[in-house]
Structure formats: C-alpha cells, structure tokens
Design a protein around this nucleic acid. Sequence first.
DNA 1: CAGTGAGCGAGCTTCCGCTTGACTT
Length: 774
Amino acid sequence: MENNLIIVESPAKAKTIKKFLGKDFLVKSSFGHIRDLEKKNFGIEIENNYRPQYVISEDKKKIVSELRKSAKNVKIIWLAPDEDREGEAIAWHLFEVLKLKPDNTKRIVFHEITKNAIQNAINNPRNIDKNLVDAQQARRILDRMVGFKLSPVLWEKIKPALSAGRVQSVAVRLLVEREREIIAFKSKSAFKVTAIFEFLDKNNNKVELKAELPKKLETKEQALDFLNKCKNAEFEIEEISTKPLKKSPSPPFTTSTLQQEASRKLGFSVSQTMAVAQKLYEAGKITYMRTDSVNLSNIALTLAKKAISDKYGMKYSKSRKYKTKTKGAQEAHEAIRPTYLENKSVSGSNTEQRLYELIWKRTIASQMSDALLEKTTVIIRISTMEEKLIASGEVLKFDGFLKVYKVSAEEEDQETSKGLLPPLKMNQKLSPEIISATEKFTNYPPRYTEGSLVKKLEELGIGRPSTYVPIISTIQNRGYVVKEDRPGKEREYVLLSLINNTIKKETRIEIAGVEKSKMFPNDIGMVVNDFLVEHFKDILNFNFTASVEKEFDEIAAGKIVWTEMIDKFYRAFHKKVEKTMESSEWSKGERELGTDPKSKKIVTVKIGRYGPVAQLGKSGDAQKPKFASLLKGQHIETIILEEALDLFKLPRILGKYENKDITIGVGRFGPYVMHNSKFYSLQKETDDPFTIKMGRAIEIIEDKREEDRKKVIKTFEENHDLKILKGRWGPYISFKKENFKIPKNKDAKSLSLQNCLDLIKNRQKSKAKTPKIK
DNA sequence: CAGTGAGCGAGCTTCCGCTTGACTT
C-alpha cells in the first residue's frame, strides 16, 4: 500500500509522472475542475456577500469518490495541478471536497515533467495560495454574472435561447465590425507598372530582367502618359547595390500559433488541430497542447542542440530563449514541442504524422541559426523622365533555420517572387520587351478565419488556450456567425501595354473576393451585437477583459478582497440590466428599404420569428402585410429594394409536367422545384429561382430520379418499404423513413430481407436500452 | 419546404475554464 497520493489534472500527465516515482506513490488525476457553480438559481448568493454555491459536476462524481477513497488510505496527499489561477483553484476544491487535513496535505508544482523537477517539487512543498484561489473565484463569478444576467435580457428583447458572455460577445463584435468595414469599403484602383527587359548574357543565353515602378499611377491617363513617354526612351542601369539581410526563426508553438499554422499549412480547422494534438500528447509524443508559453525547458534546449548538430552540423545550431508577450499569459506549461526531439517523424495516422512534423520543424527551427540573404537592388534610368524603374532580387547565402521551416506568408501580398537577378553592369543599356500598366484594385480588410480570430482574441487577452475551440463553436451554434466559402465576383480591369513602341489597350476580367473558410456574421449576430454594444458598452469593450484581469491580479497579490471587487462590479452592472429590461425596445434590426412602386407599400427587412424576413406593408394596415424569408446570402444590412421585391414573387407556378404543376419556391432548405408534392433542390451556384425555365426544372427532376435509381443497391419483392441504399457513409437500410446502419463486416448485397429486419430490431433494442441523461 | 412578435402559455434556454470520454446518423 502506498503512503503518498499525488493528484494532477490530466491522466496522461499522471501516467508520465508515475514512471518517475517509486512504489510509494499513487498518482491520480482529477480530470480538470471537479466542482462548478450550481446552474440553477444562479449559483451565487447575492444577499450573502456573493457566496458561491458549488456543486460537484455530474460527470466527476465517480472520480471524486475514488479520490476520496484513495486519500483515506495514504499518509500524505500532494496536490499538483498547474501553477496558475485555475490550477490553484482545482487544488483548493480538491482540498475542500476531499475533506483533506492541512497537516498531511501539501501543494506542489513543477514546470516540466522530469524526475529532477518532480523530486525538486516534492522537496519544496507549500500551502494553497488562497489569494490566487480567490482571484479564480472572482473570475468565475464575474463570468457567471455576465453570462447569466445578460443572456435572459436577449431572450426577452430579441429571441429565446440566445447567449452573451465576456468572451463570446467580444468575439462576435470583432467579426461584426470587420464585416461592416468590408461593407463600407470603397475599392480604389491604380495602375501598377512593370517592365520586362531581355538581353543576351556573355554566354549568349537569353535572360530576363523584371523591373517595377515603385509608386502606382492613379489614373488611366497618367498610365497612358507614362507609356507614351517610354516610347523611344533609353533605359540604362544607373545603380546596383547589395545589402545583407537576416531572417530569424519564429518561436516554438503555443496553442494559438499551432492552430494558425496548422490551418495555413495543413488546412486543419482549429478543432481538428486540437483533436490531433491531443492524440499525440496522449501517446507521449508531444508536450501539453494547451499552453500560452513559448518557453522551452533546459532539457529541450539540450536535446534540440544535439538533434540539430547531428542532422545538420554545429553551424546550424543556435540556442535561443523566447519570451511570451501575450497579455494575461499564465505560462503553466512549456511551449508545444516533441517530447523526443531526435524523432523527426512518428508513427500514427496521416494527420498525426503531419501535425507532428510541423511541430518538430517549428521547434527545431526555433533553435537554429539565422538565415543570411543578400538583397540586390537595381535602379534603371529612363531617358525621357525623372521616374526610375527598380528591379530587386534576393540570394540565399546561408539557409540556417530555413533548412527545416519555411515561414508561411502571413498575408497574401506576395506579388513579386524575388529570385536571383541576372549579371548586370553599371551603365548597361537595356531595351524593353514589354512595359505594362495593370489596373489593380485595393482590397477590403481580410475577413477572419478561425485561426486569425483566435490570434486576435489572444492579442486582446481574451479567452484561454483551453477555450479557443469552444468559443468558435459557441458563436456558430448560436447562429451568430457561419464559417463558409463564398464565391468571388467578376471584375473588369484595364491592361495597357507597350510592345514595339505601340500601346495596346485591353479590358480583362478577374475574379475578386473569393473567400475560403472564413467567418461571416449572420443578421442575428449583428442585431445581438448592436443591442449589447448599445446597452452594455463597457462589457463589450475590447479592453474589458484586460481591465478585470488587472483586478484579478490585485486579488491574487492580496491587495484587494475579491468580494469587494465583485460587489463594485455587480452593483453597477445589475442596475444596467434592470434598466435595459424595463426601458429598451424589442430589437429586431429593422431597416426600411423603400416603397414598392406597384402597391406603394413600404418594404422593410428585419429579424422575424423564424429568421431574417422581408415585409411588404405595415402591420397596422387594413390589408395584412406580406412576408418572405431572405435567401441564403442575403443580409438585412446589404439587401436592396429590388432584391426584396423579388422575394414576394415566390412561390410561382412554371407550368405542367406529366400533368402536374411545377412550382418554384424557397423553403427551409433553400430554393426548390416542387412537382407531384415532391421536392427537388435547385443547384446552389447555377440556378436562380426567379429566372429558372421549364426545361431546366424538368432536368432537375429527372436528374434526381436518376440519382435515386442509382442509390438503390437492393429491393425486396415481399416488402416495398425496405430498401438497401448507397449513402454518404456506405450502404444502409432504409425502412419507413428511418435509416439503419449495416455492420462493416457484412456485405450489403447479400443481405436477405430477414437479415435486414433483424438488424432493424437489434438497433431498436439497443436504442431503448440507452438511458436518457440530462 | 410553413410560419413571420404576443388574445391559453408550462418550462426551458445562458457563462468561462479545467479535463477526457462516449457517441457518431
């Protein structure tokens, strides 16, 4: 029987620690927090000096009782959660819930999981830091107050089941404000001049030199004027200069930078990255994946140095220490790094291997030498004017860290690929092959991706590594935002080119504004945001978290008492909640678009009971107003009168097919063709419900019929309700509008009717057995 | 695949941070 019990948060950590400790230590995990505020009745006794009502979480009851049992059988209990605010609170809750005694309970912390670090921690125990715990309680209680007082205001004033919170509401605000910037953005165009010179080098090889005019020309006239002056001009090299350039590696990964890079380089979503990282962590292949620290342990530094000199040579190695700059970082862990830096790759699924390799490269690169480059700039004189053309190129002199890790382009602006320049001489004469002036449009500010949103939140000190994934899913689940692709629009641009002293004018078409996996605010997100910003400005302020964090720090330092801080906050906050409940209007984001020329009625758009809707006429009028839902892609903020009027033209009857009406309409699942009371979806990109013709409608119907025929794998004469069909996840049984899985080891084609019926019966039985929780 | 804000009105929704399962139609 062991004499010691160590409790940590994570089972994977427990497993690792166990290896370093002798038989006398029992190592267990609490699986994170074990208690939380009661959900019913607010969980805070306002009248009793904000006394928190803690309850053991349903899914932790079993763990708590196990821990209680273990604690009884040992002499000393070591509480070893992380050394940050939340970790301290976990230790304190454990102390309270397990009814531990001060004389045989010790609080220890370690920053890396090594035998030495753990031994060192055990030799230097301390008591639970109650001030730090109080800071956490204040954080928890403030979040509950904000969330559980604000959300009901939204239910009352906008729509049921909405939510607001210190973190999520600011995340939505960022997206809404960016969207408005984009809506208001006016694109300007200017002309970019590039020249290509061709000449023969000393080996008589044809070489090209590409040069640019550093400033853009504002108008087409200026561009034409410039090209005209280039006619019969002489071009000559005026200056060649080189200067050395240095590039340094990025720090090793934190949760947020890993999420961004995995998204950019591997195309992973934020949640996918975390799921894969969790697997690697559980397998002992990487360190903990939820961290805000860029710090590497001394062991890691030594391992990195050895791995780099073994693989690439000593001159590639350079030990570096990185400092965390992020606001509010708690740094309870190391940066995310491979546990064994000598392993460049690992076994596992394809995604695991790729993510591991990314982590390995980034970690190793962070401990490598700078890359050294030489940048050459060539200035070309034009005989007919003052302006100069500039060509530049880069040569890599020493690759350094670039040997393993290419820095990914932060923003897309990589127009000129900088390569080697051909050998050139001072005063060398050049003759242009082509000089062109291309019309370029300024771009609106970029929409957020999941990763860039996380980055922004982190910069503002909002949210924690463990919450980035939940934040993103919450704001989507509430319908405030969607992540999606949107097609671009065609745009004309002018291309002027000077070839053989003649100017050619062309108009070309480019696709602009294509969006891939971007976060877009929905109408409801905008309405909720506007409401919150109007009535709860301070909480929606981007600095709100930072300023309360300062107060939490003071609580942790013992300078202020947590109940006093909370009292001050709550009094002011609660007054605002009450005032808003009483006085504010129903908020539906209504916008008037204009008057229908036919009926002379007013057209408005707003959030209706079932989502964004257009309304023709006023609700008080003698004639009841007409309503029509907005289509996907239409928004209250941007829809115009003509588009809204079109909505009232549906549903419309196109004609007859097989003696039945064909009707076009828009329903819950988007635009449809209805025929013989069956629905067929229109193609998202190609079909327009307002203009679709009979022929195309019939085509859609026939296509769907054909597809359905192909889906059928097997039918049975004896029972027409039952079919074996081919679906997205393989074959399945369809029976009276319900679908049933076919076990992987069974061949769908050879199933008999009886087999199928058995499978159905089995599923129904197992379903009945599953007890309903919650 | 329809309805579009109160003329019956129960009982519910909701926060942020720590952790991993169990569950996959």
